[in-house]
Nucleic acid binder design. Structure first.
Length: 382
RNA sequence: GCCGGGUUGGCAGAGCGGUCAAUUGCACUUGACUGUAAAUCAAGCGCCCUCGUGGCUUCGGAGGUUCGAAUCCUUCACCCGGCA
């Protein structure tokens, strides 16, 4: 279980195509995991996800713990059964909430209704975004919850500091994350789940090296890079990824958490990343924005023979636009001949169908992008 | 014809003597969104500029009262009820 086999390796970069085995089936990497935080990729049924091309989806420990609770899900037969998805699932540990519910992140969003999280050696004190109630989560709790949920791949509970953190703070986050990893391994019981450690270290080279070396030494079968896309510049992300993949073992899948934009995915694949997850395609869809292939676009995608543009269908210039988004796209909306004016109309009417169709379209875009990148690796262009 | 109610910025709709260029919602414009507190959020939305506790013109039309009117009075126009 959880074997990873490299199928094809680039001669010009660290990029590779691989097979990753899990209890609920194989994954071909590079792979993109759509985010289904509360047990659903918003507006997408399992059948929709399969049609769009999803191979594995992500859910969140923190959210499912708060509601409906891991005990209920366990009783229901586990997450796969509960949500009707028979393919691989990865649960994030709740570590990201250390960041997203932290003071700087809340301030940045102007959120005042939730008290910021407090981090200690023991764990993290959160205030539920649902009812404000105080919660405490330790690395051990996170593992126990994730074992109840029953995902194929589970994540170590990490400390993800914001981008503007001081080096000292990031250093503290790194060492805390490492200690929490060791504690997680102590309580982990299930052998049919792969626990993936997370590299922290922000934009600091020595910290990334140290963190990557440390998690590598645990030899856990897959490794993740976190603490990225928390407010820093793209170049810094690429840089951090490069530092990490220089060290993280070639023989195991590397997962870059929270990325991203098409160009970022391509840059990371080139640097040896195999797994991605991001809310962007689904969130942007809900905000009326679609990704569209474009040969002339200024947004280039390394390794792909096309660039892309972001099109906001809410703009009134699409009011009378009877063309579909992309003739070549295989998504429900495009293949169904639904024009931009209709999609815009659905969005304006707040018809759920509108955001569903855009979500479907964007996910198809990313799944196909990742698939195209695999071809590029095989053909030697990436 | 008589009696009553109404006419406010693209639309709906607050305001009913000064703090009103006018609450709010929608629409519109722009921006943001990278391990989802996000089907969300921010800013703008009469005109002008040296962009400010700035200037100018606005609340159906005209006139009036008042230091001051979207707010009170007169009148005209139109709309909606009720009775003819």
């Amino acid at each position: 279980m959880f074997e990873y086999k490299i199928n094809s390796k680039s001669k010009k970069s660290k990029a590779r195509v691989g097979f990753f085995n899990t209890p609920h089936g194989d994954i071909i990497t590079p792979v993109f995991m759509p985010v289904g935080t509360v047990g659903a990729v918003k507006t997408m049924s399992p059948a929709d996800l399969e049609t769009a091309g999803a191979e594995i989806i992500l859910a969140n420990t923190y959210h499912l713990h708060l509601r409906p609770g891991e005990n209920l899900i366990k009783k229901a037969g586990g997450l796969h059964k509960f949500i009707g998805w028979n393919k691989p699932v990865l649960t994030d540990s709740g570590g990201f909430q250390v960041f997203s519910l932290s003071e700087p992140a809340l301030k940045r969003r102007g959120v005042k209704t939730v008290k910021p999280a407090r981090i200690s050696e023991k764990g993290v004190e959160f205030y539920s975004h649902l009812d404000g109630s105080r919660r405490f989560m330790t690395p051990e709790d996170s593992i126990k919850i994730q074992e109840s949920l029953g995902a194929d791949i589970i994540m170590a509970f990490d400390y993800c500091p914001p981008a503007n953190s001081s080096k000292l703070k990031v250093q503290e986050a790194v060492s805390t994350t490492h200690r929490w990893l060791a504690r997680s391994l102590k309580v982990k019981k299930r052998s049919d789940q792969l626990l993936v450690p997370i590299c922290q270290g922000g934009v600091y080279r020595d910290l990334r090296f140290f963190s990557a070396e440390t998690i590598k030494s645990f030899n856990l079968g897959a490794n993740a890079i976190g603490g990225v896309s928390v407010g820093e510049k793209k170049e810094k992300i690429y840089q951090a990824v490069e530092w990490c993949t220089d060290i993280l073992p070639e023989g195991s899948p590397r997962y870059l958490m929270g990325i991203g934009y098409p160009e970022d995915i391509a840059e990371a694949v080139e640097r040896g990343i195999d797994m991605f997850d991001c809310v962007l395609p689904t969130r942007l869809a809900r905000h009326g924005v679609v990704w569209k292939k474009s040969k002339s676009s200024v947004k280039k995608i390394k390794g792909a023979d096309y660039g892309y543009e972001q099109v906001n269908l809410l703009k009134s210039k699409f009011k009378g636009d009877l063309d579909i988004i992309d003739e070549a796209c295989r998504c429900k909306a495009c293949r169904g001949g639904l024009c931009k004016s209709y999609l815009r109309h659905l969005l304006l009417e707040r018809e759920p169908l509108g955001i569903h169709l855009l979500t479907f379209h964007n996910l198809v875009f990313v799944f196909d992008l990742v698939s195209d990148l695999r071809e590029s690796i095989k053909s030697g262009t990436l």
